[in-house]
Design a protein around this nucleic acid. Structure first.
Length: 780
DNA sequence: CAGTGAGCGAGCTTCCGCTTGACTT
């Protein structure tokens, strides 16, 4: 029986550490936090210095019970949760729950799971640091206060859907996306002209090659560009000057959670949650270090392994030892960077995780490799008819260094193509002119966020932590504040002027696609309305620097210079009175926008948020005649819909005429476009457009769908509104929205079931619902 | 499943950070 019980947060870590420490130690995990604030009354005693009321959540009862019994048997309990604010707090909660003496209990920390680090930690235990614990309590209490007081304000003042929410992190994340969208909508693209000249010259093999030289600075108008080309007619071109400069590129730091998510998104197209899922798998199978980290540090053991790998595979000149500094101020560095556990494993067997593993391996290796070296050549070219000069740049790699294994990706595909090679040139050499073009270029707005670029921005602002980036993104999508989707681009004309070899100036117009987006984050109308409301009434919490400011105060608490309850009091007093004023005085937020006046009725047309989503309306509620309403299409937004687009929406419902003696109409409902006929509804086929579909197209569809439905129906009890239907799992009963499963025996004689029998089955299943609910009861 | 465009009324929703599993008609 082990004499010592050592508790860490993660079970995978527990296994490894037990192997390192051996017989005297039993190592167990507590699976993260074991207590949280109660939900009733926010779990905070507002009248008593914000004293928190903690409880063990249902899903942690089992772990706590097990740890309690093990702790009782052990001679000594060691608390080895992570060395950061949350980790310190976990240790304290463990001490409280397990009844350990906080003054005598041994607390140890390590930043890497290696034998020397663990052994050193065990040799020098400390005590729980209550200042750090208090900083965590302040963080926890503040987040609860903000979330649980703001959210109900939204329920009252916006409504729309249940489960609206607001919080220190999520609301600012939505704000970023909302403001970016508006920037893009307001963006006015400006055009300018870029001059490029093409020459041919002999390369080292005396083969003729074409190269490019850029013209003088951007030209703002087509006329000036034209004048420039005209001025070059009949010119001779000569190399006026050549400069050769060395250049170098350095590798990126090893992966943190945030940079791993970014690179997996750029290079592998993974969503943030997919990356984390795969990384978790790699971590659990012992192939990489912990994947939720903000540290760029590598352990000494790892540094040695990396050195061996590089020198063996590529040679000594490819190795350069580097220590990376964290650029991120909010980093708490409780772990290592994300790296392979064993550097000599270049890949893994598992198909799913292989690409991510190889990415991690390459990045880790590259981080300790030499710079890539280049030689950059800039040639100035004079124009005989003109005092302006052209410049041609070429880049030649002299030494590949880390580029042999890895190059970090970019968020935006660069419009500027990278410098290519130049043929050998000499000063005063005359050049063979091919053509000169002036191409219209357009300024572009900042790009919409991807999941990964949002994480990058959040990290810069210090909002959220490695463990919460992925969950925060799914929260704001689940709340319907933000959606991830594609957007089709629009065509636009691009003017190109060309001066040919024969000294003719030609003009050409080509079309390019602009504004197309793939898998980007768009705010919904709800997201915009909620953000505007919060910005208007809760400026302080919505400030991009709010988290950074309170983090400074948390640091003061951690340093013992500030009492946590005082800090909370300073925040809460004004915050809460702001909540009360807002509840009392703020109007319901509807995001209303006037689009124009309806020519037919002379009434105003407005777009706004309705009870059931974004909509347009003609007329006002107080008018004698009821207003007309129409729902916006999924691709439309209150903010951008035009008057004409709005009027188009009022063309539904359309009456198409009679089929088999009953009217047929089409409309768009909750579940998309449908046709109504004889009191029944039929979803339109995908290719049918409700605005233009004809009776001739719809009639056969109705007949077909009706038949399919009939075939599924075994029996109908009209009066009771109960049906016996055939589903993919065999016959079942349907009453209203609910389905009821039949037993094997009942399924076999489904067609003979009487109404009494059916009612009895429903009663029975309502009284004794299968599994799912029964399980929950047990848990309680 | 295909309405609606509100709030005396009943009751419900919600935060951020730590960690993994076990749900299917």
């Amino acid at each position: 029986m082990a004499k010592n019980l050592l508790i860490v947060e993660s079970p995978a870590k527990a296994k490894t550490i037990e192997k390192i420490l051996g017989g005297d130690f039993e190592v167990k995990s507590c699976y993260g936090h074991i207590r949280d604030l109660e939900k009733d009354d926010m779990g905070i005693d507002l009248n008593n210095n914000y004293t928190p009321r903690y409880m063990v959540p249902e899903d942690k009862e089992k772990v706590v019970k097990e740890l309690k019994s093990l702790a009782k048997k052990a001679d000594e309990v060691w608390l080895a949760s992570d060395e950061d604010r949350e980790g310190e707090s976990i240790s304290w909660h463990l001490a409280e729950v397990l009844g350990l003496d906080p003054v005598n209990t041994k607390r140890i920390v390590f930043h890497e799971i290696t034998a020397p680090a663990i052994k050193k930690a065990v040799a020098s235990p400390r005590r729980i640091n209550m200042d750090l614990v208090n900083a965590q309590q302040a963080r926890r209490v503040l987040d609860r206060l903000v979330g649980f007081e703001l959210s109900p304000v939204l329920w009252r003042k916006i409504g729309m859907q249940r489960s609206l929410s607001a919080g220190r992190v999520q609301s600012v994340a939505v704000r970023l996306i909302a403001e970016r969208e508006r920037e893009i909508n307001a963006f006015k693209s400006e055009s300018s002209y870029k001059v490029e000249a093409f020459f041919s010259a002999k390369d080292i093999n005396s083969k003729s090659v074409t190269f490019k030289a850029d013209g003088p600075a951007k030209i703002s108008s087509q006329q000036t560009a034209l004048q420039f080309l005209e001025s070059c007619k009949g010119a001779a071109y000569k190399v006026a000057d050549i400069q050769v400069k060395p250049a170098k590129r350095t590798p990126a730091a090893p992966f943190t959670t945030s940079t791993l998510q970014q690179e997996a998104s750029r290079k592998l197209g993974y969503s943030v949650s997919k990356t984390m899922l795969l990384a978790q798998k790699l971590y659990e199978s012992g192939q990489i270090t912990y994947m939720r980290t903000d540290s760029v540090n590598l352990s000494d053991t790892a540094m040695g392994d990396i050195r061996n790998e590089i020198t063996q595979s590529y040679g000594n000149n490819y190795y350069q030892s580097r220590q990376y500094k964290n650029k991120n101020e909010s980093a708490q560095e409780a772990h290592e960077a994300i790296r392979p556990t064993y550097m000599n494993a270049h890949t893994v067997d598992d198909q799913d995780t292989r690409r991510l593993y190889e990415l991690i391996w390459k990045r880790t290796i590259a981080s300790q490799m030499s710079d890539a070296e280049f030689e950059k050549t800039i040639a100035k070219i004079s124009i005989s008819t003109n005092k302006d000069q052209l410049s041609a740049t070429g880049e030649v790699m002299k030494f590949d260094g880390f580029l042999k294994v890895y190059l970090e990706g970019k968020d935006e595909e660069d419009e500027e193509d990278t410098d290519g090679m130049l043929p050998p040139l000499t000063v005063s050499q005359t050049l063979d002119f091919t053509k000169m073009t002036a191409t219209e270029k357009f300024t572009r707005p900042a790009p919409r966020y991807t999941e990964a670029s949002l994480v990058k921005k959040m990290e810069e602002l210090g909002i959220g932590r490695p463990s919460t980036y992925a969950p925060t993104i799914s929260t704001i999508m689940k709340r319907n504040y933000v959606e991830k989707r594609d957007k089709e681009g629009v065509k636009r004309d691009v003017n190109i002027l060309e001066l040919t070899k024969k000294d003719e100036v030609k003009k050409e117009v080509i079309q390019e696609n602009t504004g197309a987006e793939k898998s980007k984050l768009f705010p919904t109308d709800l997201g915009l309305v909620v953000t505007d409301f919060l910005k208007q009434h809760f400026q302080k919490v919505m400030d991009y620097n709010f988290t950074a400011k309170i983090e400074e105060e948390f640091d003061e608490i951690a340093g013992g210079k500030l009492k946590w309850n005082n800090m909370i009091d300073g925040f809460y007093k004004p915050f809460h009175s702001n909540i009360e004023v807002t509840l009392e005085t703020a109007e319901r937020a509807k995001g209303e926008r006037e689009l124009g006046v309806d020519a037919a009725s002379g009434k105003k047309v407005i777009a706004r948020m309705g009870r059931y989503g974004p909509m347009v309306q003609i007329g006002h509620q107080d008018d004698e005649e009821k207003p007309r309403f129409a729902k916006l299409k999924a691709s439309q937004s209150i903010e951008t819909i035009s008057y004409d687009e709005a009027m188009e929406l009022f063309k539904l419902p359309r009456m198409l005429g009679e089929f088999e003696g009953s009217d047929v109409s089409v409309n768009i409902g909750r579940f998309g476009p449908y046709a109504a006929h004889d009191k029944k509804f039929y979803s339109l086929n995908k290719e049918m457009d409700p605005y233009s579909v004809t009776l001739e197209e719809i009639a056969p569809m109705i007949a077909e769908k009706r038949q399919a439905k009939d075939e599924r129906t075994i029996k109908v009890f009209e009066k009771e509104k109960i049906q016996v239907l055939k589903g993919p799992y065999g016959p079942y009963i349907k009453q209203g929205l609910r389905n009821y499963k039949l037993s094997k025996e009942q399924q076999e004689r489904a067609a003979e079931l009487t109404i009494e029998e059916v009612k009895a089955i429903i009663e029975e299943l309502k009284a004794n619902p299968p599994k799912k609910v029964a399980r929950k009861k047990k848990a309680k």
